[in-house]
Each structure stands twice: as C-alpha cells, then as structure tokens.
Simulated scan of single mutants.
Amino acid sequence: MSVTSHYFDGLFQNSDDPWAFRQRWYERRKRAMTLAALPRERYTAIFEPGCANGELSVELAGRCEHLVCCDTSRRAVNLARKRLASLSHVDVLHASLPQQWPAGQFDLIVFSELGYYLDRQDLHRWIDRALASLTPSGQLLACHWRPAIDGCPLNARQVHGILAERLQMHRLLTHREDDFLMDLWSHDATSVAALEKLG
C-alpha cells in the first residue's frame, strides 16, 4: 500500500522543514545538481509533484513560464504557497497522486524523492498519468534517496527500474552516488550541444 497523507501531515506537524532542506548541504547540493541536470535553460510548463515546503519549487520557477506543484499534506501546501506567493506564474495545489493529476501538458516533470512512497500499482498509474501529460518533446527527471526507508513499499533502485521499463524514452543522464540516484528521460534525444549547434 502507498504511504498515506497522514504520514506526511505528521512530519509537518512539528516542523516547517522536516527534511532540513535549507540546512543540510546534502539537500542544497542535490538541488543544485537537479537544476544542472536539466538540458534546457527554459521550459514552458513544469510539474513538480511532492513539492513539500517549496524549496526546490522556488528554483524550478526560475526555469519556466509556468510551474505547477502539489503535495498531499495541507500543511506543506500552505508552506509552499507562502514561499512562492510572490511568483504569479506558480500554482500550488493540494492533491494526492496519481488520483488527482493536474490538467495541462508539461515539457518537464520533476519526480524527486517521491516514488518509493508509492506501491507498485500506484507507481504504474503515476507513470501512465505522467506519460499522458508530457508534451511530444517532454522530459522526466527522477531523483531518489538510495538507502531503504522504513515503511516505504519500494526503494530507489526499484523505482528507477520501473521508470526505465515503462517510460520507453531516451535516457539523457544517469548519475549514481551512495546517497541517491538521478536519471533524466526525454522524448527528444538531442543533446545540449547539438541544440546549440556546437561542434
């Protein structure tokens, strides 16, 4: 069974930053690497599910014309809305995925630290919804913590394995560390240098 919203509500009940996104160098470095991994300087529309308190969302907002982010925890959504209040091109939604998927098409979906909270059935449904909402040149970036997390149905290796099998897209980037996995898939295989007609 997928982890329920009560788990995340509990995490945010006593802290506005339960994973120490702002304090930990690990988290700040991972955000920088996530942004650096994106092959395009600008995107038309980005979707960030599981946005938590909006720390990564702020950075993604600077890379797109429209950002949609969501979280299953009402407290997290309120914190993210406050964090992003000055950005008129950002929508923060309260939603449980994969059931409550936002409308619209996205040329980037950022699937960060979320997949292992879903069971296999919900992850497959999540991928179905993602594929249906990606544009013909759309991309999906996945990043997940590698050590096992108590109570989670899946681990990072399983999540990225299922993504690779189901997406059937070009894998433009793979990064492996003891701490996390990062992969970026794209419908379009053109490299950054080729896009700028270098070489």
Rank of each mutant, 00 (worst) to 15 (best):
T44F: 06
Q13F: 09
D16T: 10
A32L: 08
P147E: 00
L123T: 08
D107I: 15
R81H: 00
P18K: 01
W25A: 11
G54M: 07
G104T: 02
C70N: 09
L140E: 06
Y117S: 04
Q23C: 10
Y26M: 03
L93T: 01
G62I: 03
D17Y: 02
R146E: 04
H94T: 01
L108I: 12
W126F: 15
C143T: 10
E27A: 08
L118Q: 07
A32N: 14
C152M: 11
L140V: 15
M33F: 09
D122P: 00
E55R: 09
G62W: 06
L108G: 12
I127G: 06
S57G: 12
K30P: 05
R81Y: 04
R28T: 06
C70K: 00
D17P: 02
G151V: 09
R40I: 03
G151Y: 05
N155A: 04
H144R: 00
D119Q: 11
R29V: 11
L87C: 02
R42F: 05
W25T: 11
R81S: 10
Q23H: 14
C69E: 07
S57I: 04
A76T: 03
L38R: 08
R29Q: 15
A130P: 04
S86M: 03
E59I: 06
L38P: 06
D17F: 00
G54C: 04
M33W: 08
S73Q: 01
T72M: 09
P18S: 01
A85L: 01
A45R: 14
T135V: 09
S112A: 13
A76I: 13
D150I: 11
S86Q: 12
I127K: 05
R129M: 11
T34D: 03
Q105Y: 02
G54P: 12
R29K: 13
D150G: 06
M33K: 13
L38C: 12
L84N: 01
L35Y: 01
G50K: 02
A45D: 03
R75V: 04
M33I: 12
F47V: 01
W145I: 02
F111W: 14
R75H: 03
D17N: 01
L118N: 06
T135S: 13
S137V: 05
V92M: 02
R29W: 14
F111E: 01
L123F: 07
I127L: 00
Q139R: 13
L123Y: 04
P153T: 11
L79S: 07
A61H: 02
L154M: 14
G62M: 04
K82W: 12
E55G: 08
R40T: 10
E59D: 15
A61Q: 11
K82D: 15
A61T: 05
L60K: 08
Y117L: 06
E27P: 02
A85Y: 00
C70G: 00
N14Y: 10
R42C: 12
N53V: 01
L67S: 05
K30V: 04
L114H: 07
L87I: 09
Q105D: 08
H89R: 06
E41C: 07
L140Q: 02
T44Y: 14
A36R: 12
C69A: 14
Y43F: 15
A52C: 13
L97V: 10
S15A: 09
W19I: 10
C70Q: 00
R146C: 07
A45L: 05
D71P: 08
Q100E: 15
F111G: 00
G62C: 07
G104S: 11
